[in-house]
Design a protein around this nucleic acid. Structure first.
Lengths: 207, 207
DNA sequence: GCCTCGATACTGCCCTGTGCAGCATCTCGC
DNA sequence: GCGAGATGCTGCACAGGGCAGTATCGAGGC
């Protein structure tokens, strides 16, 4: 059997998940998807405007035209079939995680450049991860203080946030560790007797 | 200024990095890219056959036609301009990491299904991460035992491997922790008084 | 000598997804 | 009444993924 055309993607199901919480306009949906899903399923805003149309075409959502003065807008809502499709999707085994880590490509090929370039790359990894950690903590403080729209979902959110927090912290720790190791090297290919095997032993990078 | 056509991507530079080590046939290059870069810059084999042509068009590599009997093959080698382009690229700040984690989407929307579905998803996360951990350890054992083609690059490899190992271990630990928490819940939205705020405190998920 | 199997060596096609430019309206503060 | 930022989209070119398809080579079994 040839692969069916217009099969629903993970992105489709992710938006279906948001629609299961409440109806949204496309704009709200796009923003909300970036705020929440963006941490583990990042998608360009552009894509988030196309996807709901596919959900409607598949009968999993409805689109209602409204207007604010002269400006039109579309409100999407999930259908019974949509909820059922979401349940069925939760049964399928998840795809393995994908990590695109450009900085690691630069670390891997650091012998094409200088130790200073390597240090700068590691520094940037630490900076980015620190920024994301701060953004996560800000989100958490917010949900702790004010009343939250989806209070029943806080435990599920917490599971995911715990993973994100630990992940960003891991990057900060790794980048700092790597910089301290690199500081003893003479060049990107001459580690001056540095014991790389020890670094790969269990707990090798623990401070 | 409009964005220049045919600009080199991270994938181009990654392959340029491999070519900086030695010449490869397209086939070898594709396999090697998946074996090594695949851990932090995964790309479909298909793409890896197109990219070297762009490098040649940009003057950063040369292509030499050879043949094994009747079967043709192309050997790519880096040029002086290629090495210089690689060095220049190492100076540019790396793009922030991108994590596509479909399983987390399923965790996030677990309230559209059952606790058992959530448990199965978490179990699959643990299984996948364990598999990858084992593959990494096998790679490390290999480079420890036999003579390695790029011995001078072992320290750089070790920096990256340390990050990968810790990352996969983090996923294993998180998935186990999450399952143990979820086992006390009554439903995906009723955590039976589970203290999600404590779980988000520093060290909240540590065993 | 022949056959099969896996490795080598690619290409075409259709789809998803990104990034950027562009366009128009609404709301709020000044 | 005016400008800035939020709202609400679309078009286009290109990067990238997945799968099917094509063909040759080399080693081992019978």
């Amino acid at each position: 059997m040839p692969r069916s055309r217009n099969a629903l993607t993970t992105t489709s199901h992710a938006l279906l998940g948001l629609l299961a919480l409440r109806p949204w306009t496309t704009y709200e949906l796009a923003k909300q998807a970036q705020r929440s899903l963006g941490w583990f399923w990042p998608r360009a805003e552009r894509k988030l405007y196309d996807e709901p149309k596919k959900l409607v075409a598949a009968g999993l959502a409805t689109a209602t035209e409204q207007r604010t003065g002269k400006r039109p807008r579309t409100v999407y809502a999930i259908t019974r079939e949509g909820r059922s499709a979401l349940r069925a999707w939760l049964d399928e085994p998840p795809a393995p995680p994908v990590h695109e880590f450009e900085a690691m490509v630069k670390v891997f090929f650091a012998d094409g450049g200088t130790l200073d370039q390597l240090r700068a790359t590691l520094h940037e990894v630490e900076r980015t991860a620190t920024e994301r950690l701060e953004a996560l903590h800000a989100m958490i403080d917010e949900s702790r203080s004010g009343p939250y729209e989806f209070a029943g979902r806080l435990p599920l959110n917490a599971l995911g946030l715990r993973c994100e927090l630990d992940h960003e912290q891991l990057l900060v720790d790794w980048a700092r560790w790597a910089r301290s190791q690199v500081d003893t090297w003479r060049s990107p290919t001459d580690a001056a007797g540095w014991d790389w095997q020890a670094a790969l032993a269990p707990g090798g990078a623990r401070p």
